[in-house]
């Protein structure tokens, strides 16, 4: 953003050095959603591995192969692509990176937006032509 104020005069005091560490401690892993700019805390009900925004379900491509390794160079935005159920009945979200098409899956959290989840689950049935053709071919 361009500077809107006049540049500081030479004799003015410089800003004091701050020694508060913002990138350590309990709130270190909190993140802001790339989709809706919601501030998200990683403490979530029902899951210890929150990686997506509870409001718009968007995520960020930071992990490579192992969840939590933070080894990916991509940093692309990951959109929720599909929902599936694990054999124990838990819903999982499949995310797809918009910049490199990589896929990843994560369990839903207790405070995820129920409407967004159901809309995602209903997406295969949304196109009635495709769904009815599949039913006819059964």
């Amino acid at each position: 953003m361009p500077r809107r104020t006049r540049p500081r005069a030479q004799d003015q005091r410089r800003q004091r050095h701050k020694d508060v560490l913002h990138d350590q401690g309990r709130r270190a892993n909190d993140f802001r959603c790339v989709g809706c700019r919601l501030d998200v805390s990683v403490d979530a009900p029902g899951t210890a591995h929150r990686n997506h925004c509870p409001q718009c379900l968007a995520s960020l491509h930071v992990d490579r192969r192992i969840p939590g390794d933070r080894a990916s160079e991509c940093r692309g935005r990951m959109e929720a692509l599909a929902v599936f159920t694990r054999p124990d009945g838990e819903w999982m979200i499949v995310h797809q990176c918009l910049s490199c098409d990589e896929l990843s899956s994560n369990r839903i959290a207790g405070d995820d937006n129920a409407l967004a989840l159901v809309r995602l689950a209903l997406r295969p049935l949304q196109d009635t032509d495709r769904a009815s053709r599949t039913l006819i071919n059964l």
Partner: peptide, 19 residues
């Protein structure tokens, strides 16, 4: 098509919250 349709409706059969 049976497996495809089963996979498409499987999440709705076990919703994590009351629909």
């Amino acid at each position: 098509q049976l497996i495809l349709m089963r996979m498409a409706v499987r999440p709705l059969a076990q919703p994590p919250f009351p629909l």
